[in-house]
């Protein structure tokens, strides 16, 4: 059974872009360990020689023209959704 440590939770939170509160860590650790323990019962299944199924449509390579749609949402409407926007751009805190 996979043991999940406090450090593992912190690492998974980093991978997931979540800045967890200290108080959340232990209960998430216990839950994640329990869920992984549950899903590990899949190891009882023999899947030798089977191809994985990633999608169920039987469709392959659906192409379309890479051109703007006439009824697409307009720039102003999209910028209005951003928590911060300035000079026709979405604004983020200083990166460098």
């Amino acid at each position: 059974m996979t043991q999940i440590s406090r450090d593992d939770v912190v690492h998974l939170a980093t991978l997931s872009n979540l800045q967890l509160e200290e108080s959340e860590i232990e209960s998430l650790r216990a839950d994640i360990e329990k869920i992984l323990e549950y899903v590990e019962q899949l190891n009882e299944l023999d899947t030798e020689g089977l191809e994985p199924t990633y999608q169920v449509t039987d469709l392959e390579n659906v192409w379309r023209d890479d051109s703007p749609k006439e009824d697409a949402a307009d720039r102003e409407a999209l910028l209005a959704l951003a928590p911060e926007a300035q000079n026709n751009s979405v604004k983020v805190p200083k990166v460098l």
Binding site: V9, L12, L15, S16, L18, E21, S27, L36
Partner: peptide, 20 residues
């Protein structure tokens, strides 16, 4: 990190982290 921590409920976080 903070927007996501505040904006998601616990079950969202569990699933995102299991997925990661």
């Amino acid at each position: 990190g903070k927007s996501r921590d505040e904006g998601f409920v616990t079950e969202n976080k569990r699933r995102i982290m299991i997925g990661s």
